[in-house]
Design a binder for these strands. Structure first.
Lengths: 154, 154
DNA sequence: TGATAATTGGACAAACACGTCCAGTTAACA
DNA sequence: TGTTAACTGGACGTGTTTGTCCAATTATCA
């Protein structure tokens, strides 16, 4: 139900959060997160336009997070690349329904609201800090800053 | 975040639930739910293959629900046409993660689980019975069985 | 200033979602 | 049996998502 673009964006941001405040190149992110490099660059452009990451051209450049991991939520990342669109009004355009949704669409919107809420409550810092047998993006237990193979909170 | 197909399927099923146990033709459903008729027929085929509706060819034929509205959940309808796929294993295919998801994918899967749960708890009968200013699929308050303009729980 | 490393943007392509159209099939009814 | 109503299946068209490739641009460093 989540698009590939959302999946890729979250992987990239998780990797960057683990490396923060260091900049990482698209190549490094692609390798660590196992996302096709050329497509990742498009996703990162979206994150850049959405104010989630900052990109620096030229030698020594790369991508950095705009916010610190504890200030950045999953919802912000998702909304930057593939916004969660709540159901604002009757999809059938029925005049009588207006702003008040019918029971069906109210339930669908409630489901969206739940997703929105749980994504709003998750910060990247929390995700990185959570004790788990699986370290985000890493295929093995690893120390901070050796991110060659480790980058996606998978 | 929900596909058009899911939206259309739910409208159709809501309409049928309101008319149950009477059969309704694709034409009637399309008009009431404001779904493109030709495409609706494809969606109904999916619902038929998924065991949600029964279709009867020939004069006097049409579409009926297989279950009664109180036995049919929103989740069953959704899964018949566009299944909610929980995250079963690490999308990166990291061996070390195996069945245990990392914190990121655990959160994404939790969001899916919430949607699944709230859809599983909603029956069509509940949706139709819910007191609301907006009657599903109807542009005005209307009695049962005058469904020309009313069919989608919007 | 020249070489190198990096992002950017546009053109392109494949797969899928959404939607249309129509000939074929099935069933009821007179 | 013939006519009419209704679903079925396939072919097709269009737009979006996902993905690739490459020339242009920007920035660092010697």
């Amino acid at each position: 139900m989540f698009s590939q673009t959302v999946e890729y964006a979250l992987r990239a941001v998780c990797f960057l959060a683990g490396q923060a405040p260091e900049a990482r190149t698209t190549d490094q992110i692609a390798t660590a997160t196992r996302v096709p490099k050329a497509y990742l660059s498009k996703v990162l452009q979206g994150l850049s336009r959405g104010g989630i990451v900052h990109s620096q051209r030229g030698l020594g450049g790369g991508i950095t997070l705009v916010k610190t991991p504890d200030q950045l939520t999953v919802l912000e990342v998702v909304n930057a690349v593939d916004p969660i669109c709540r159901i604002q009004e009757c999809p059938l355009g029925l005049a009588a329904h207006g702003v008040r949704l019918c029971p069906l669409h109210k339930r669908m919107d409630n489901a969206l609201a739940q997703v929105e809420a749980s994504f709003r409550e998750s910060t990247l810092a929390e995700i990185l800090a959570e004790p788990s047998e699986s370290i985000p993006l890493c295929d093995f237990p690893m120390p901070h800053n050796e991110a060659e193979v480790c980058a996606d909170p998978c």
